[in-house]
Design a protein around this nucleic acid. Structure first.
Lengths: 197, 197
DNA sequence: ATGCTATGTCCACACTGGTGGACATGTAAA
DNA sequence: TTTACATGTCCACCAGTGTGGACATAGCAT
């Protein structure tokens, strides 16, 4: 979940600004996803990236600047919830949490309590993700419906992962997949139709 | 939203432990709901309660102890999502956010990023709320389905309030009420039936 | 090889957080 | 009235945070 989009830390420790930036970005993504915006500190990120703390301010201006870049990257490829993919989405959200596809949502949830971080994420979501999803939806009100889909999925992940709900974490959670899929379909399919493919 | 369950600040007695406790509790509930567990500071709460900071540690042991009591109170009366009430719930979540019924959820969302706060809330939700909701649901898997309902509603509120989603905040959001209600019904009604009262 | 600039490093500042000790004072019991 | 405890108050501590200044060094152009 970390080696595919960002180059791994290079063993030859010369002076390479691009590699340093990438290393910071990777460590920041992991830290923000795991601890949230407030929970992750720049010192910790720098240590994980094996980089001096000062370089974060230097390369990204501030913690907020770093966060903004991380968020943009996280939402470039993220779980899609189209009518055809709702079954997959429901499964991914309920069963295989913490897999790459839902990391973007996880990042959002863990940082949503910070107002400034929330504004950064809202921008990125609407710009990078929601528009893409809206184009894949049939019917009208696609923008609002895509937002509603993101909202529903966020809630599931929130309850499962952050809150650690026992009912949504035991073995029987598999039986919830059809329910969740039906709920998502209720929003994703066109209003008049009763799609049940 | 504040004067109904907690006694207002008392005029007469100058030293009244019960009144002080209640005042702290009220200020803490407002602060935690507005700013989240991490965002709200004990000094701020004490100032809002017109009380010395030290009394918080004295009466509630710690910030966590205070939070636990606030959470318990918040979930005693909260929005219910039964099949009959899903229309109301959908309306409340999408239109009249920040009303009393959803404050419990709001408190949860704003504090969920803190792991210790999340554990406190999970306990309270499962103990005070989820069980109650499960009893009102028809069919099987009522506990897991009630958890799923809470999850879906949390997501809507999260996206609307914390993230400030524009698509879920403009005038056209009314058109989303039937969608959300259908999604909730997909979980709240019994599996085989197709209840659409 | 030498100088310049980019790159990396160390230290410290100002600030805020939660918590606790020691003290003052009101309130009720003896 | 006097004593004792509950109640309220002030101050300080320590561990965090993000940010910036001043300095060392590597890598490249000349």
């Amino acid at each position: 979940m970390s080696e595919d989009d960002l180059p791994p830390v290079p063993p030859p420790r010369r002076r390479d600004a691009a590699a340093t930036r990438a290393s910071i970005l990777r460590a920041a993504r992991d830290a923000f996803t795991r601890l949230g915006y407030d929970g992750a500190g720049v010192r910790e990120i720098a240590r994980a990236a094996d980089v001096d703390t000062r370089l974060i301010s230097r390369y990204f201006g501030s913690k907020e600047g770093l966060f903004a870049e991380v968020v943009d990257l996280a939402y470039e490829k993220s779980l899609m919830m189209t009518p055809e993919l709702n079954a997959d989405a429901a499964h991914a959200l309920l069963i295989e949490t913490d897999q790459g596809a839902v990391d973007g949502l996880l990042l959002t949830l863990r940082s949503a309590s910070n107002a400034r971080a929330a504004a950064i994420m809202r921008d990125s979501i609407e710009r990078n993700y929601q528009t893409r999803l809206a184009e894949a939806l049939p019917g009208t009100d696609t923008m609002a419906r895509s937002a509603l889909l993101v909202a529903l999925c966020s809630g599931v992940l929130l309850t499962r992962t952050l809150l650690g709900s026992t009912a949504l974490n035991d073995a029987q959670v598999e039986r919830m997949v059809p329910y969740l899929r039906a709920a998502l379909d209720a929003v994703a399919v066109a209003p008049a139709e009763d799609g049940d493919d």
